[in-house]
Structures are given as structure tokens and as C-alpha cells.
């Protein structure tokens, strides 16, 4: 395959999966500038690895690998990595009345809670929310399905606690 053809294919794949990259960047960064940097890093890494893609797995599975690997191993380059984010601007709600909240508000809370998870947990919860099967998650992360199920249960519990904390503004 010549370079032009390769570039064409690559661009088409990236356009098709732009949303996937956007989600990874949103989960792993806190500012727009970092988000753009990470997006660029992932695109460059994907381009470097693209000639090796043989189609043995779905493109999205392969792309998740590149994106997560780049996100979790590359974020320390400029400054010390922010492991915990204190959302000072979050309103300190008095009650834990989730029923009264719209889905969008709950989603915002979920994002805030996810940002307090560690890097591996973030990847697992993102894939879970994307409805990826445990088999596919295993192919991306390299963890056994049994281990992933155990971790997912723990993460669910952790997220429940974290959203409660966010609700109470702690």
C-alpha cells in the first residue's frame, strides 16, 4: 500500500472514531489545553503504529489500546501529574436527592467522580460505560475477565461513595 493510500485510510478511520478519542481525552485530562495535547499525542502514536494494524481485532479495540496506553503513560511530560482533582467550583448540595436531578446533572457528577479514580479504574469504567464486552475489555487492557468483573464491582461501589461526597461538597 502506498503512503497516500495509507494516509487516506488512516484519516477515514480517525474521523470515524473521533468521538472515542474525545472520550479518552475527557476522562484523562482536566483542561482544554491538556485535552488538545493528549488528542494530538494519541493521533501521532496511532499514526506511528497504524502500518502494524493487521485487522486481527476491531479497529476500535486497537485504537482504545493506543489511546489508553498513550494517556496513562504520557501525561507526566510537562508538569507533575494531577492525580486528584478537587472540584472547588462544584456546588455543595445539601441533600443526596438523585431522583430530583436530571440525567445530565448526574452525568456531570459521574465525570467528577471518575476523575477521582486512578488511571486504570478510569479506563475500566470508560469501557464499561461504552458497553464494551468483558471479552473486549480483556483484549484492550490485558486483564482477565474475572479480574475485570471484580474490579468493576469495586469501582461501582467507589463511584457511589464519591458521588455522595461530591453531593455533600466534601
Amino acid at each position: 500500500m502506498d503512503k497516500q493510500e495509507l494516509e487516506k485510510q488512516f484519516e477515514a478511520h480517525m474521523r470515524e472514531h473521533e468521538l472515542l478519542l474525545f472520550k479518552v481525552c475527557r476522562i484523562y485530562t482536566f483542561t482544554d489545553v491538556d485535552r488538545q495535547d493528549l488528542f494530538q499525542d494519541i493521533v501521532i502514536q496511532t499514526w506511528k503504529a497504524f502500518p502494524k494494524f493487521r485487522g486481527e481485532s476491531k479497529f476500535s479495540t486497537w485504537l482504545y489500546r493506543v489511546a489508553i496506553n498513550t494517556a496513562i503513560t504520557g501525561l507526566r511530560r510537562k508538569k507533575d501529574f494531577i492525580t486528584y482533582y478537587e472540584p472547588l467550583s462544584l456546588p455543595a448540595h445539601i441533600s443526596d436527592d438523585n431522583a430530583a436531578k436530571t440525567d445530565e446533572e448526574q452525568l456531570k457528577q459521574l465525570y467528577e467522580a471518575i476523575r477521582r479514580l486512578n488511571e486504570v479504574e478510569k479506563a475500566i469504567v470508560m469501557l464499561y460505560m461504552e458497553d464494551r464486552s468483558y471479552e473486549e475489555m480483556e483484549a484492550i487492557l490485558g486483564l482477565s475477565q474475572g479480574n475485570l468483573r471484580v474490579k468493576m464491582n469495586r469501582i461501582k461501589e467507589k463511584l457511589r461513595q464519591l458521588t455522595k461526597e461530591i453531593n455533600y461538597g466534601t
Binding site: Q45, K48, A49, K52, F53, R65, N69, L141, G142
Partner: peptide, 15 residues
């Protein structure tokens, strides 16, 4: 270490 298309766990262990 530049290869980023391996499974996340094995990639980390390799690095």
C-alpha cells in the same frame, strides 16, 4: 518503548 498498540497491562510491564 514507543509501541503503544499492545495490551495495556503488558505494555506497562514491558516499559
Amino acid at each position: 518503548m514507543e509501541g503503544m498498540d499492545g495490551m495495556v497491562k503488558s505494555n506497562l510491564e514491558l516499559q
